[in-house]
């Protein structure tokens, strides 16, 4: 029975890892830049879930003390509260995440304006042609590959 307890206690972490790896697969295997960003977001959200689940305490509740009509806190020692520290870290991380995601999306827009495509393979192909052309014109003068 100790194995069953162990599996139930760790199943959550393994499910987060499944989600995380799905996100990683999208980032690695798909060439479309917007889809890569979506994959990165899935990866990021899975990390957030991992952090939050570390702070969860069985039988606990959200870390907010009840307040009576006069605005005084009702502190009841028998109530268990979950750990608020991971909540704070992840709360700020989500907003920072959207700010950095928008920066990545802005970069994608600029990439499309320059290369007229957002597929990784096409961009690499264009880059290869450009550097080959450079080699042809400037290569001999530079003494080999430019």
């Amino acid at each position: 029975m100790i194995y069953l307890d162990f599996i139930i206690g760790h199943l959550n972490y393994w499910l987060f890892i499944v989600l995380m790896m799905t996100g990683l697969y999208i980032v690695v295997a798909r060439g479309n830049l917007v889809k890569k960003i979506v994959g990165l977001n899935i990866f990021q959200t899975a990390v957030f879930m991992l952090y939050i689940s570390i702070g969860k305490v069985t039988g606990g509740t959200a870390p907010i003390y009840p307040v009576d009509n006069q605005g005084h806190m009702q502190v009841d020692p028998s109530i268990i509260y979950s750990n608020p520290l991971p909540h704070v870290l992840i709360l700020t991380a989500i907003v920072v995440g959207i700010a950095t995601t928008s920066l990545a999306l802005a970069l994608i827009i600029r990439i499309r304006e320059v290369y007229d495509t957002i597929e990784e393979e096409d961009i690499l192909e264009i880059e290869r042609k450009l550097s080959a052309a450079d080699n042809k014109t400037h290569g001999p003068a530079m003494g080999g590959r430019a």
Partner: peptide, 12 residues
């Protein structure tokens, strides 16, 4: 201070 929320959520 009293319920879920704060500057980040309100800003969004």
């Amino acid at each position: 201070d009293f319920s879920p929320g704060g500057g980040f959520q309100a800003g969004v």
